[in-house]
Design a protein around this nucleic acid. Sequence first.
DNA 1: CAGTGTCAAGGTGGA
DNA 2: TCCACCTTGACACTG
Length: 303
Amino acid sequence: MKIGYPCINRSLKCKSARTFRIRNYSEARLIETVRRNLQCLLEIIEYNIREELYFFRITSDLVPFASHPVNRCRWQKFFKKEFLKIGDIIRKNDLRISMHPDQFTLINSIDPRIFTRSIAELEYHADVLDLMDLNSTAKIQIHVGGVYKEKDKSMKRFVLRYGKLSTRVRKRLVIENDEHNYKLADCLKINKETDVPVLFDAYHHEMNNEGEGTAECLEESSRTWRSFDGIPMIDYSQQKKGAVKGAHAERINTGKFKRFLKITHPYDFDIMLEIKDKEKSALKAVRAASHDIRFYRQVQIEN
DNA sequence: CAGTGTCAAGGTGGA
DNA sequence: TCCACCTTGACACTG
């Protein structure tokens, strides 16, 4: 059991997602931005190791306009050493890594041009993880996509399109249930057709489900992760009090988190906390879960 | 220098 | 039919 937070570290001054406007694009600007972003990513990784936060989501903004046609720069070659250095530290300290392309990545879009653009975006994410020389336990998580008023057809289109993705993308890709469209049960159906692992989002599940209990969800989603996928990942968040349904809480409620851990026992998984104050809540969560972390570590040693 | 409108990209759902 | 919301900051223009 590893616990982590996504993309941004609020305790450090630097940002690994610096960007600029596309009209100001130049190769020099791109190189300078990526250089600074990688430097900051290194600082965040070192912070995480110091603080024993062993799960981290790398921002998709690491390389601005990475899959956009305006970007003709061979940044992969240019920053080969820097990526590898960060990857070495990640591997040496056994950090778990994920990435989450945003809502524009749509494998099942009706428009084939959007599928083509989505492939480019997925290849970019695979580039980042490959350049760090991370194995297939480093994952790229996406939602199933649009419904287009025909869910069955749209799910079939996902399955078809999934088969057309490159091997290096497929070995990292996982799908996640969302709060409006594709429930856990839908994701599990797609898994039967494709073997794509299902990442259980506990918070989205609260808003979009078929009445399944949390333990059942953990059991079913865990089963979709093969040995080369690593320990199953889950997303965890809490409702922000007084805000609209679905808003992420400002800080973690550790009592509630402990109850969640109790329910999910004995399923081991790595937890991504989608809580606004990022590493601060992750640190609290690690303390709250210390018993569980020790328990699952012992189970791993025995196996 | 502070304030603020806007940013590559798609889809959904409420007004 | 239009716009806010995803996640949210940070860029860059205006005065």
